[in-house]
Design a protein around this nucleic acid. Structure first.
Lengths: 204, 204
DNA sequence: GTCTATACTCTGATAGAC
DNA sequence: GTCTATCAGAGTATAGAC
């Protein structure tokens, strides 16, 4: 389906995308059903298929929208900035994404868990190119002594792991911390400490 | 089904569990089919259901086996040991689990992504009790000045995030690093650095 | 644009022969 | 213990009325 025109079409298109994000992010592609999505969207199943050609079409639309924004935080890592502040700002942006787009994070995580069959081209292409570029930048910063010597790829993976964990494993953290604690409380302070200490250039 | 007796029964039981681990860890509970598991095990679908009562029964057996061993590394964190060495050894054990049991890690991750409906009792019970106990230990170590002041729960979550990432996001890391690099190379050195610097008690 | 009805396929599970 | 055959229900998708 091409871009929706009328107000109703735009509204229903959004309703479906939002419902599909809820369902797909929780149950994965194969574990999700059109019935669930239709119920969640408050539409009939055939009506879903009026707006999208197929179940796969909905999923593809969701992923496409997601990937566009997913790598933006890393893209903004600025070679001209102060190294430690730049990396800490990147950590902060990623953590914000986990806080504001947890469903998207889980959708992405689910895809990777399955071996990333539907986003392999994106990862091997756009994402890999960007990571290579930023890893080189981090390596240059380390060589110049502006941050502590660190393995650039592992540093980037660590930032992903630590920030996305707050979205992807939210359920576990809530069950452990109890209902009156939000896992996000103190997360930024903690991660800032981790990376400040890791990257401080002077030897201890 | 109770414990298998004959050699063939034990062998087939194992074949099914192993095949089911492959399939469930990749596609989640609802996304997996008995046909896939049967094909993977080299058995017929009815034969699967001779050994297990149902699809859910297979999945439950898998999870039960998994959870027993999943928290063992944390359990071994020793109050009598040297704090930093103890925590680094825990990180190392968790990383070893990611290396040797990546499918189990992904099965667990998938369950949490789905909101942990089938392991909620385990998390709220056994796991939470253990984490509370070890968090108190870490807090005591920090208060005594034997490690740097750190938020105990966030520290534990960070260890989980960083180590499990090497199993759960393996597909992504491989695609980024290319076929001739193993994501695990340098992982232990990197994580050791991260936590040594984080926990070193003297101020920088 | 949206609905009801329905076609057709897949999936979990059972029956019964061997 | 293992197989073939098969059932009942769920799932994706389409046809066609309104």
């Amino acid at each position: 389906m091409s871009a929706p025109r009328t107000r109703i079409q735009r509204r229903n298109h959004r309703l479906i995308m939002d419902a599909a994000l809820n369902v797909f992010s929780q149950h994965g592609y194969r574990g999700s059903t059109l019935d669930q999505i239709a119920a969640e969207a408050g539409l009939s199943k055939p009506n879903l298929l009026y707006y999208f050609d197929s179940k796969e079409d909905i999923h593809r639309a969701l992923l496409t929208e997601l990937l566009d924004t997913w790598i933006e935080p890393l893209r903004r890592l600025d070679p001209a900035g102060e190294p430690r502040a730049e990396i800490l700002a990147y950590v902060s942006r990623k953590l914000t994404m986990s806080r504001e787009y947890p469903r998207e994070s889980r959708l992405f995580a689910g895809e990777i868990l399955q071996g990333a069959p539907r986003i392999e081209a994106f990862i091997r292409g756009e994402l890999r190119t960007l990571v290579d570029e930023k890893a080189a930048l981090i390596r240059a910063w380390a060589r110049a002594g502006r941050i502590a010597p660190v393995q650039p790829y592992h540093l980037i993976f660590s930032i992903w792991a630590l920030t996305q964990h707050y979205a992807d494993f939210d359920a576990q953290m809530r069950m452990i911390l109890g209902d009156d604690h939000d896992p996000m409380d103190g997360a930024e302070a903690h991660l800032t400490l981790v990376f400040e200490r890791l990257l401080a250039p002077e030897p201890r």
